[in-house]
């Protein structure tokens, strides 16, 4: 196949409104899912790293299992949950962006929590002793350790984001690939390939790659000194 096809398409695609709408929607859905996963996953991972209690082992095992959970099975579970015959059918969320966010949180949350836990655990124990000796409250202590482990914590966000923005099985099952509503880059690529529009599919793949790269660059900026440790 000639490479001229996707390139010429790309130049036309810049003026293509549907393409930009898909890019924006992809960022909205996966960005929301990542934000929710970070808000729950970073505190959860930190708590699991810093505390010892009875059920901890079970929760850790659950998180590790979730890290390797097949996204398409997550999609199936969320589908059954939100289906009209399912327990949450009354919400009428199936085939909406909300359903996709739920599925993506289930996929990304264990990655964020598990990798954050590992990162915080591997911080030099002396740092924790030092923080305590300086009279840090438990919350300040946790914040200090997260700041110390920020490289790993940001890596957990990168892993979570990579896992969901490129994911297609769950997105297709619970989103339904509805034009103008739940069609994201990954499902659009499947659609274009199925239709034999290989040039457009390749171009969309390039956009997805570029987007992931840019978002990861932005996330890596967080690996610098955090605001709460400045001054």
């Amino acid at each position: 196949m000639s490479l001229g096809v996707p390139l010429s398409w790309l130049s036309e695609g810049v003026a293509n409104h549907e393409l930009w709408a898909i890019v924006l929607r992809t960022l909205q859905v996966s960005g929301t899912a990542l934000a929710v996963s970070a808000l729950i996953g970073i505190p959860l991972g930190t708590a699991l790293a810093l505390t010892r209690f009875g059920a901890r082992r079970w929760i850790v095992a659950l998180v590790y299992t979730g890290m390797g959970f097949p996204p398409v099975v997550v999609g199936l579970s969320v589908y059954l949950l939100l289906s009209r015959q399912g327990p949450l059918g009354g919400l009428e969320w199936l085939f909406t962006p909300s359903a996709m966010v739920i599925a993506q949180v289930v996929i990304a949350l264990p990655l964020v929590a598990g990798l954050t836990m590992g990162a915080v655990e591997s911080v030099d124990p002396d740092v924790r002793l030092l923080l305590r000796a300086l009279g840090a409250s438990p919350v300040q202590e946790a914040l200090g350790l997260v700041a110390e482990a920020r490289q790993g914590v940001v890596a957990s966000l990168v892993a979570g984001f990579g896992g969901i923005i490129s994911e297609v099985g769950a997105a297709m099952l619970v989103g339904g690939n509805v034009e103008g509503s739940t069609r994201v880059l990954s499902t659009a690529i499947v659609l274009e390939t199925r239709q034999g529009a290989f040039g457009m599919a390749l171009a969309l793949g390039g956009v997805l790659l570029a987007l992931t790269f840019l978002v990861n660059l932005m996330l890596m900026r967080l690996q610098g000194t955090p605001w709460w440790s400045k001054g």
Binding site: L94, F95, N177, E179, G180, T187
Partner: peptide
């Protein structure tokens, strides 16, 4: 118009389309 909120163009096979119609 796919933006009208009642016309769902899903770009999938017949079986998936019928499932969608059944749900919605």
């Amino acid at each position: 118009d796919p933006a009208g909120g009642w016309y769902f163009a899903i770009g999938q096979g017949m079986a998936a389309t019928l499932r969608f119609a059944d749900e919605k």
